[in-house]
Design a protein around this nucleic acid. Structure first.
Lengths: 157, 157
DNA sequence: TAATAGCCGAGTAATTCTGTCAAGTATTAG
DNA sequence: CTAATACTTGACAGAATTACTCGGCTATTA
């Protein structure tokens, strides 16, 4: 229940790769493809959407690739997913692009709305920076470093 | 993004109708169909699943219908949805019925897991009783009654 | 000017969703 | 006992969505 499409998942993983490569300059589709095991053709489609949305920008020609349009802590997971999969909308009723006929007097409507807001605030609060820190942590956790705030939650299990 | 299937939605609405009809005895599929505007044939499928799961029980023959197997506050929305749509699993990786190859060292895995747990606790905490109270509230809210706890959240907008 | 790298639109196979349909079985009122 | 009521079950099918692929193009730079 409530599954995310591969497009959204791959999109987040691609953005993570671009963020991770910041110091090395633009990251190519080919690199992302190899590191995240997603086809080049599919990534083209995904990254194109994200570029048009202004989350990343591209550099063409040799030495080119993709770079983040702003710093990792300013790019939320929610922002990425919204571009690739549309707004959080548990039911079609709650999709601003569709609309609902029987809103009034519908308890379940309120229920789904509250759930949607819950999810959205989770996703909007989590950023690429958090993913980067979570990744650092996983790589070094045996050495007992200080754990970044939000990532601790990600590690309770 | 993250849409619930109609099966799950109708299932919750059907359970709400059965809960609402408690004082009148068994609720028939036909009644649910009329009140919630869902076809009888589709409801048969849905209610059958819920019956096999032990959430409702059926009474056959004239005067029959469906009744809750336990009291409304003991039936969570999460329990209903899990029967109709399987466990919360943002990605196939997190579906216990499937499994994941690349769990280790995958930050996004932790992210989706945390989101899933968040959603699940929301759904497991919300029960049919809350829906009933929310409904009462909507019917009488102009008269300034005391608002049940959880429903207040459902009314912040 | 050739190689690199992104840009773009169309198309398609597979899967999932959203139901319908037909033919039962159990129960009870009369 | 029988007719009407209601739930039970399995199969199936059309529509929509997903998850991609493919072919050809444009921009940049070494």
């Amino acid at each position: 229940m409530l599954r995310l499409s591969t497009k959204g998942q791959y999109g987040v993983r691609a953005m993570f790769e671009i963020a991770r490569g910041i110091s090395r300059g633009p990251t190519t589709i080919k690199e992302i493809s190899e590191r995240q095991d997603v086809s080049v053709a599919y990534l083209e489609q995904i990254l194109n959407t994200l570029r048009k949305a202004g989350l990343i920008s591209s550099v063409r020609g040799p030495g080119g690739g993709y770079v983040l349009s702003r710093s990792p802590e300013k790019i939320s997971i929610g922002a990425i997913l919204r571009e690739l999969e549309g707004p959080v909308a548990i039911t079609s009723c709650l999709d601003p692009r569709e609309g609902c006929l029987r809103v009034d007097g519908c308890v379940t409507h309120l229920l789904w709305k509250a759930l949607g807001e819950n999810i959205e605030s989770f996703l909007d609060d989590m950023t690429l920076k958090d993913l980067l820190e979570g990744n650092d942590l996983m790589a070094t956790q045996r050495r007992g470093r200080r754990q970044p705030e939000k990532i601790r939650m990600l590690h309770k299990s």
